[in-house]
């Protein structure tokens, strides 16, 4: 692999955001994902290659380490932050169509629920998986999900809930999407949600952690 790509990749994996960031200590004073990505683009590297050969693989390693409990939420967040510092240089190329992402992913915490930490983690990891993420926030009613689906045809949906009471609203949203739209993939998650519940309400996939969701998404586009 190109030297600079492997450098960007390890910056993301270990959460080295930019030159100024003190973390991780052994990379102190060195360029971070931010500077290196800028440099790679200026040197003529293809934005699509940076995404596919550096950012996505690095975030996949991070996601797997988290699933195996080798790292914890803080390290995952640092990795995600350094990924976004690289991503900001790629955004213009996504807009111009020069670089492409895998698809769109709409995520929200269901109606009546205000929890967002878990949802944010999933959103970040899926963005790091090469998807364009549309985060509708918390307390998102069915209508808002349907509207977002209309505006983003072909998008995959993710629903999060943290209480058994609000999990009921997850069911309502899934039912309404199924009635009004066809062919939409729906992922569900959150502390009280289980695989059984996912099947019962007619959603497509349940994952207890973000990486499981990323893997599932990769599978649908492969």
């Amino acid at each position: 692999m190109d030297d600079i790509l492997s450098k960007i990749s390890s910056c993301v994996e270990f959460g080295k955001i930019d030159k100024a960031s003190p973390y991780p200590p052994d990379m102190k004073g060195q360029d971070g994902a931010d500077e290196l990505t800028r440099k790679a683009i200026d040197d003529g590297m293809k934005p699509g290659d940076i995404l596919e050969k550096a950012l996505i693989p690095a975030m996949a390693i991070v996601g797997d380490k988290f699933s195996r409990k080798e790292i914890y939420v803080p390290q995952m967040l640092m990795a995600a932050k350094s990924m976004s510092s690289a991503m900001k240089h790629l955004k213009p190329f996504f807009q111009s169509g020069e670089a492409k992402r895998k698809g769109k992913f709409i995520i929200g915490t269901v109606a009546g629920d205000l929890h967002d930490i878990g949802k944010n983690l999933v959103a970040m990891m899926i963005e790091g998986g090469g998807w364009e993420v549309i985060d509708l926030g918390v307390d998102v009613g069915t209508d808002k999900f349907i509207k977002a689906i209309d505006e983003n045809p072909g998008a995959v949906i993710g629903l999060s809930a943290l209480l058994t009471t609000t999990m009921e609203n997850m069911k309502k949203t899934v039912t309404a999407i199924r009635e009004k739209k066809s062919g939409i993939k729906i992922l569900v998650g959150g502390a009280p949600v289980t695989k059984e519940y996912c099947e019962k309400i007619g959603a497509d996939y349940y994952s207890p952690d973000p990486q499981g969701a990323v893997n599932y998404l990769n599978q649908i586009v492969s």
């Binding site: 939420v73 803080p74 967040l77 640092m78 932050k81 976004s84 967002d116 930490i117 944010n120 970040m124």
Partner: peptide, 15 residues
């Protein structure tokens, strides 16, 4: 927490 997360300071928001 919400404000930090929104502004991109994810770790602080989580803490």
């Amino acid at each position: 927490s919400k404000k930090s997360m929104k502004e991109g300071d994810l770790l602080r928001g989580y803490i």
